[in-house]
Simulated assay, not measured.
Amino acid sequence: MNAKHVHPSQPEGIPPGRPGRKLGPIDAGVAASHRLWLEVLRMRFFRSGLTISDLSERSGWSKSKISELLRGTGLYPRWEITCSLLHVLGVPTWPVRRLWAAAAREAQKKPEWIDSCIQGVALHVGPDTPPVDHRAFTEMHRPAYTAYARTFLRSDAQAKRTVDEAFDALWLRWDEALTSSDVVKFSWQVLRRSVMARTPRLDGHPELTGAAFGTVALSEKKAPAEKFAQFEESMALFAAVSRLPAHHLDVMVLKHMRGMSDAAVADVLGVPVVAVSSADHYAQQHLTTALRSERAPEGTPSDSDH
């Protein structure tokens, strides 16, 4: 029987008819880096046909400990038990160890604790470098992925870490990516989820305050009053951009904030060039209407009211 395909935007699912007690969802409080490797581990578990009891017998860890780890509850798991489950499920250990360490740092674990957990645990599942085609894909798309991440995240360092983690997660799912309908689209969703998981939110939408500060207009020599007025205008614009549908938002960020051509954006998103042009046209129309409506004095009908 073929493995059930799981779309990257829906990383969890339990096949029907599975014996034993169903595993609960990932705890809502699990941080982004932790969730990244935990989702992959859970997907492998769901597809393996094994039960929690099977994992317990094969790894030597108790069912309660395994269930806790797979749900992300309790304390952040030690590398020893994590690695044991990776071995049982045949998950490559090298990329997960990097993701595990990044998540441990995010969980405020001290470097000494991380090092002591890792020491003495053998890594013998999978190669220590990604496949050649994955490395080529990474080299090709890293600049655009990093530019996209820098638009939303607080610092260049955080953007770089997020992209590195996304490529490690993609390594873990590379076979799935290659068998998907489009490897570029699949990979973009992996990257996008990693970025959005770390992006500050304002009223439920991605916050683009940093992008507003970084506009070219704000860097020009202007009087303070003019700069403040420009900042207000930029904030209104970027607030409207943040409320666009995901695809239109991505096109606007890559094309207008990162200066990429339609063809380059299409290559990154895995869509036809005409789809980029169409999304750009729609987004600009929507933004024009939204900003005109916002600037209209109270009680004055906007063009959309006619």
Score class of each variant (00 low, 15 high):
67 S>R: 08
18 R>Y: 05
30 V>L: 10
63 K>E: 15
36 L>I: 01
22 K>C: 02
75 L>P: 02
20 G>S: 13
57 E>H: 06
44 R>T: 00
59 S>T: 15
18 R>H: 15
37 W>H: 03
14 I>P: 00
41 L>S: 04
107 A>K: 03
38 L>A: 03
74 G>S: 10
104 A>F: 07
75 L>D: 14
78 R>G: 15
47 R>M: 05
96 V>F: 15
37 W>P: 03
66 I>Y: 01
38 L>S: 05
20 G>Q: 11
12 E>Q: 14
13 G>C: 06
94 W>G: 01
61 W>S: 02
23 L>H: 10
19 P>M: 14
105 R>A: 09
73 T>F: 08
15 P>T: 03
103 A>M: 06
43 M>Y: 05
35 R>Y: 01
97 R>F: 02
55 L>K: 10
38 L>V: 06
104 A>L: 07
50 L>K: 15
49 G>P: 10
96 V>C: 12
90 G>F: 10
34 H>A: 14
67 S>M: 06
37 W>F: 13
23 L>C: 09
72 G>N: 02
102 A>T: 11
35 R>E: 05
77 P>D: 15
86 L>K: 08
92 P>R: 05
103 A>R: 07
106 E>C: 03
14 I>K: 13
95 P>C: 08
35 R>A: 14
60 G>W: 11
61 W>R: 11
45 F>L: 13
82 T>F: 09
75 L>I: 02
